[in-house]
Design a binder for these strands. Sequence first.
DNA 1: GTGAAAGCGCTAACAA
DNA 2: TTGTTAGCGCTTTCAC
Lengths: 347, 347
Amino acid sequence: MGVTMRDVASLAGVSSKTVSNVVNNHPHVHPETRARVQRAIGELGYRPNFSARGLRSGRTGVIGLAVPELRQNYFAELADDVIAAAENHGLGVIVDQLGGTRQHEVDVLTNGLRQTDGLLFSPERLGTEDLQLLDYVGFPLVLLGERIFGGPTDHVTMHNVSAARAATEHLVDRGRDRIAVVGAHPDGRENQIRPADLRIRGYRQALFEAGIEHEPQLERRVAPWHPQNGAEATRELLASGLQFDALFALNDTLAVGALRALGEAGVRVPEDVAVIGFDNIDTGRFTLPSLSSVDPGRGEIARTAVEMLIERIEGGQGVRRPARLYKADFHIVTRESTGDLSSELDT
Amino acid sequence: MGVTMRDVASLAGVSSKTVSNVVNNHPHVHPETRARVQRAIGELGYRPNFSARGLRSGRTGVIGLAVPELRQNYFAELADDVIAAAENHGLGVIVDQLGGTRQHEVDVLTNGLRQTDGLLFSPERLGTEDLQLLDYVGFPLVLLGERIFGGPTDHVTMHNVSAARAATEHLVDRGRDRIAVVGAHPDGRENQIRPADLRIRGYRQALFEAGIEHEPQLERRVAPWHPQNGAEATRELLASGLQFDALFALNDTLAVGALRALGEAGVRVPEDVAVIGFDNIDTGRFTLPSLSSVDPGRGEIARTAVEMLIERIEGGQGVRRPARLYKADFHIVTRESTGDLSSELDT
DNA sequence: GTGAAAGCGCTAACAA
DNA sequence: TTGTTAGCGCTTTCAC
């Protein structure tokens, strides 16, 4: 490196401010001047120094994305979408993994990520009981996920309750009335605001509306939502002797484990037990059978979150627009695990 | 924000350089002074400005990671490992997705990512024919993957040939001698340096050493390595009428598709056809049957690449240490798809 | 439409 | 062990 705006300016015979105007696509530059500057830039191989720009302008052009961990398919796909959306706005993305510790989540919320203008934050440990932490956040923040509601920041999430209700209805519509669910929160408190609780609420609503008696034994508690735990819970369900003709896994990761356990036990899916998941991760298209799921509108979530964050960044601290809550549209994706008996590959 | 070192310095009654020394953990600071400064930092809520530090020191404390796309499980897991390794060294990671276009790869290689000290680069389109591009890279670079060899930069990769040979031997050891392979490169040229070609070479070596005749029809060409293509190729193989009792998928993503296709056709795995993949992605533990694979030492690759990059960054342009080529250790992971007939879940 | 001057917050180099 | 000076490269402000 080493080529600065001054070098470009002197070669082009202009001031460095004019070079700056050209580099930043300012409108009022004479076309001829612009061309001359651009020629000089090309000749010298000039690259702007983003640290200097960041220091002077107070903007880095980079946003942070903090998620639990990328090896969870859902977050990898979310990161994919966020990075793509940010790039469309000319922004880079620093990805941080919260790694399942509360302390790390508090740190990130307190300090932000270095060199970023704002943060997309999808916590795994913090909950609504930590709401006060959000009041002291000193940078633009958009919250993702279903763990904290009612805070002072913008929030992008999904229709958990109604999507879970729709998933359950999807099973009811296929004539199932002994519908097990895997993934309830272990502490079993109702009316909490966590993905597990919201989705359980939707499940119960659907049963109630269909006139199906709610059987508490069919609600299996699982945490964390890993495939092995989904498999485990499903094995216990099978061993319990409880009858069930459908299974709603509260996310696809659990569902993958459930399909394993059902397959091991020789239970046919969907003939004996229909299975639906939640998240619509890519892998669900290639399980055997392929997995029906709730598509939570992840791409829309990513795009909206990035746009909201940009508005907050550009609005600056001055614009005290009230916090917005955005819920993406969802839809049910029907595949083999709740479908008819053909075995077409959904691609 | 707005609290600067000067503010801290005047509150603590020292110069800003002393504050800098404290913030950067310089050794020669009087413990009492250090304590006083830290108290002032806490009182004022001082946070360092990384742009200013970057401008002055020439280091941003952030590295770039460019991969094809995070929705491919292997790259998500690689990014997970890289971010974790970087964090251990106090570095942030900007993740860029190359998105399958040659132009984007050239751009990244030419310009680097903004605000970074160096780049881990795992191209998908560029090949050894683009070697000259590496000569003009103006920042520390560590190459990942198997597409470009012999360049002027450090390179971290895996033992493709011998790992593929070991995977094939693993099938031979189980008494299989009609071993199909899915994922050969469509142009079919031999002795190219691409993952597909290297792994095919290992496959052929193993057959040769086992005295098994090489049957070109059993080598199926597939690109890109997506599950649907793996399924497709496997269906063609089944439809061809060729006999085979084992299948080596050149990566796990293809293998997932192959398991689908075999399952659809009622072919039993591993009884009728044993299957092994390559990459050891997490998902392979939960397919039905679970997937044997080559573990390419991804964690080791990530850690080594980050360390090499740091050495290059800290060494500066002055240290012209010759380019290093590091190949991680691999090992075979045996699961149900090549295992005995028990159906224990490998967790 | 372009230029001149100032300074963002920090750390390198040197002085004390 | 600590302080002083200077300036990294850019954009802001304001003049022209």
